[in-house]
Amino acid sequence: MEVLDVLNLGEIAQYFSKMAMFPVFDCAYYIVSILYLKYEPGAVEVSRKSPVASWLCAMLYCFGSYILADIMLGVSPIDYFHNNSHILLASAVWYLIFFCPLNLFYKCVAFLPVKLVLVALKEVVRTRKIAAGVHHAYHAYHHGWLIMVITGYVKGKYLISPEGSIFRGHVILVFFSPTKASLYGAILFTLQEAHLLPVSKSTLICLFTLFMATTKVFMTARHSHGSPFALIESWLCHLLFGSPLGIEDDHHHSAPAAASAPLSPTKTKEELSEVTRKRKSKKAE
Rank of each mutant, 00 (worst) to 15 (best):
V3M: 08
L7V: 07
I12A: 06
I12F: 03
A13V: 02
Y15C: 04
S17D: 10
M21Y: 04
D26K: 14
C27W: 08
C27D: 01
Y29L: 03
Y30W: 08
Y30T: 06
V32H: 07
V32L: 11
I34S: 02
L37N: 08
Y39F: 11
E40G: 03
G42N: 05
V44E: 15
V44C: 07
V44R: 14
R48G: 01
K49Y: 00
S50M: 02
P51S: 04
A53K: 12
S54A: 15
W55A: 09
L56T: 08
L56C: 11
C57N: 11
M59Q: 14
M59S: 02
L60S: 08
C62L: 01
F63L: 03
A69E: 06
D70L: 01
V75D: 13
V75T: 08
S76C: 09
P77E: 01
P77I: 00
F81K: 04
F81C: 10
H82D: 05
N83H: 14
N83V: 05
N84L: 12
H86V: 00
H86L: 04
I87F: 11
L89K: 06
A90M: 01
L96R: 02
L96W: 04
C100A: 14
P101S: 06
P101V: 01
L102R: 14
L104N: 00
L104A: 06
F105Y: 11
F105M: 04
K107A: 11
C108W: 14
V109D: 07
F111N: 08
F111H: 11
L112A: 06
L112N: 05
P113D: 11
V114T: 14
K115C: 13
A120S: 13
A120Y: 05
L121C: 15
E123S: 05
K129P: 02
I130L: 09
I130S: 11
G133M: 08
V134L: 09
H135I: 07
A140H: 14
H142I: 01
H142F: 08
H143W: 06
T151D: 12
K157Y: 15
Y158H: 07
L159S: 13
I160K: 03
E163A: 12
G164D: 02
S165F: 07
S165A: 12
I166D: 04
I172E: 15
L173T: 09
V174A: 13
F175W: 12
F175V: 05
S182A: 15
L183Q: 06
Y184D: 03
G185Y: 01
L191G: 09
E193Q: 15
E193N: 14
A194M: 14
P198K: 05
K201Y: 05
K201L: 09
K201D: 08
S202H: 11
S202E: 15
I205T: 11
M212E: 06
M212Y: 12
K216T: 12
K216H: 13
V217R: 05
F218Q: 10
A221D: 12
S224Q: 04
H225M: 06
H225I: 07
G226P: 07
P228M: 02
P228Q: 00
L231V: 12
I232N: 03
L236K: 03
C237I: 00
L239S: 09
P244Q: 00
E248W: 02
A255T: 15
S260E: 10
P262L: 02
P262V: 01
L263W: 08
L263I: 09
P265N: 07
K269A: 10
E270W: 06
L272Y: 05
E274R: 13
V275T: 10
K278H: 11
K278P: 00
K278Y: 04
R279I: 13
